[in-house]
């Protein structure tokens, strides 16, 4: 979902930019005095610059409302399942690998050797969430699975020659 939005937004703005450059290139062979062009374009730039800053501010505020670092607010009766994860060259040691749909889970991720990346993938190979697995530090990632199935943990930080083979599995019932 996020990947789709990111792709569409990128494609839209990249197309607009392409159109502008093609337009200017097409108009480049005409020759006009520079002074009036500058005057007109500087005026337009003020509007464009202000619009861009406002748009960036709006997107910033909107996207910073909920951050993946923030622990979710759990209901009074709900206790999250805490899973200790230790990355080693080249595998995942997890205190628990079977979960239920709707169960809030907190992965507490560290590493006993080098830096790895803890990426949670669904059965269609979509990346759902990730964090870094660092030696001496514990990063946390929060997730509640809403579909049953087998999920995979792929390493997302280069960690040595079997980096691509560092795949773990978890089951959600």
């Amino acid at each position: 979902m996020v990947q789709m939005v990111a792709s569409i937004v990128s494609l839209f703005f990249m197309s607009v930019i392409t159109a502008i450059f093609v337009f200017v290139a097409a108009k480049s062979q005409e020759r006009r005095e520079y002074k009036p062009i500058k005057k007109k374009w500087y005026k337009a730039r003020t509007f464009y610059g202000v619009t861009l800053v406002i748009a960036m501010l709006v997107v910033t505020i909107y996207t910073l409302r909920e951050l993946p670092y923030d622990q979710p607010v759990y209901g009074a009766e709900t206790e999250p399942t805490i899973v200790d994860v230790e990355a080693v060259q080249f595998g995942w040691i997890m205190s628990e690998t079977e979960f239920s749909v709707g169960e809030p889970i907190e992965f507490h991720v560290t590493s006993s050797d080098v830096t790895h990346g803890f990426g949670i993938y669904d059965k269609d190979k979509n990346l759902l969430a990730q964090t870094q697995a660092m030696p001496e530090y514990t990063n946390e990632v929060y997730i509640t699975f809403d579909k049953p199935g087998t999920y995979e943990i792929l390493c997302l930080e280069y960690c040595g020659l079997a980096h691509h083979a560092m795949i773990g599995k978890i089951e959600v019932k």
Binding site: V2, Q3, T63, P68, A129
Partner: peptide, 9 residues
């Protein structure tokens, strides 16, 4: 940040 969460690396 919310995009990076699923696109980093």
């Amino acid at each position: 940040i919310v995009v990076n969460h699923v696109m980093h690396n």
